[in-house]
């Protein structure tokens, strides 16, 4: 069990060593978003911007015009919510090479409650033309994602989480932006998940197997550009799809999958995510359980389709 934000911090430090153009900015949350190690190793390339996320994002854009690869880091609520228009107009519109890297996404922020639990960020970032949206599921994939995001040309939203989560990629961790990873093959139903819901999807698939139902499970770590090739293959094979994400069911992975399937191959879909509601205070596991963002919730959605 390790947090994706810790993987981000470790990968950022490595990137600092590899590429002198990588710089990091933060908005008074350096230790929380794990830029501390980078800041200590590269003080000249670390910029504390105070509690002013819109400014931080525009500053990052200005730096990108001068050849830097800025990682603008804060909580998902602020980096994509408070600063949305900076991302849209100053980063997205001119397609600048800025990486919006946000931790504390979703319900699993936990006790701080709904004001800090960002459940709309994937939707907000996905609608910006040219924006790439990446949601890794565990420590190894978040590490690989951070490296891939730095190498990617153009603006990226990298969505990370606060709590320690189960490791999905115990051995190798293939990671290509825009390519989903098929983790399990089965022909009865496909579970398309990202973030912490990938581990739960595998649990749900185990349970289904006990009942004689063969499920495919795919990690769609990139919401945009969506891996429509893999999605179409899953739709053709399984004819039923369940999406699972730590996000509102409107506008996130479920939305992206439905938009693609409506065009490619109309397929019945059920959506695991928060059902158009805000969160509340609580322990991450308790919140996931209450809002159906766990193996039980995924199983229930699968049963609706089977």
């Amino acid at each position: 069990m390790k947090a994706t934000r810790d993987a981000f911090g470790a990968a950022l430090l490595e990137l600092g060593k590899e590429n002198p153009n990588v710089v990091a900015l933060t908005a008074d949350l350096g230790e929380s978003v794990k830029t501390g190690e980078f800041a200590r190793a590269f003080p000249q390339r670390f910029f504390q911007m105070g509690i002013a996320e819109a400014n931080m994002t525009d500053v990052a854009a200005g730096m990108a015009t001068c050849g830097k690869i800025p990682f603008a880091t804060t909580f998902a609520m602020f980096g994509t919510g408070r600063a949305w228009e900076s991302v849209r107009n100053t980063v997205g519109y001119p397609h600048l090479n800025v990486k919006i890297a946000c931790t504390h996404s979703g319900l699993s922020v936990g006790e701080d409650g709904a004001s800090h639990q960002m459940l709309e960020d994937v939707a907000l970032m996905r609608v910006i033309p040219g924006m790439t949206v990446v949601v890794p599921c565990d420590y190894p994939s978040a590490f690989a994602a951070t490296k891939a995001v730095a190498a990617w040309k153009g603006p990226v939203y990298l969505r990370l989480g606060r709590p320690a989560v189960k490791i999905v990629y115990e051995k190798e961790c293939p990671f290509t932006i825009g390519k989903g990873n098929l983790l399990r093959e089965g022909g009865d139903i496909a579970i398309v998940a990202n973030g912490p819901l990938v581990a739960f999807a595998l649990e749900a698939a185990d349970e289904l197997a006990k009942q004689g139902i063969k499920a495919s499970v795919a990690d769609f770590h990139t919401v945009k550009p969506l891996d429509t090739e893999l999605l179409l293959a899953l739709a053709n094979k399984c004819k039923r799809i369940v999406t699972a994400e730590e996000h509102n069911v409107i506008g996130g992975l479920g939305g992206a999958v439905s938009e693609a399937l409506a065009k490619l191959r109309p397929t019945p879909v059920r959506f695991v995510g928060t059902q158009d509601t805000f969160g509340e205070s609580g322990k991450p596991a308790d919140l996931w359980k209450k809002y159906g963002l766990d193996a039980t919730g995924i199983l229930k959605a699968c049963k609706e389709l089977l």
Partner: peptide, 12 residues
């Protein structure tokens, strides 16, 4: 936004 972008340029 331009003011803040200019700050980023000046820093870089």
């Amino acid at each position: 936004h331009g003011v803040c972008g200019a700050v980023g340029m000046a820093l870089a």
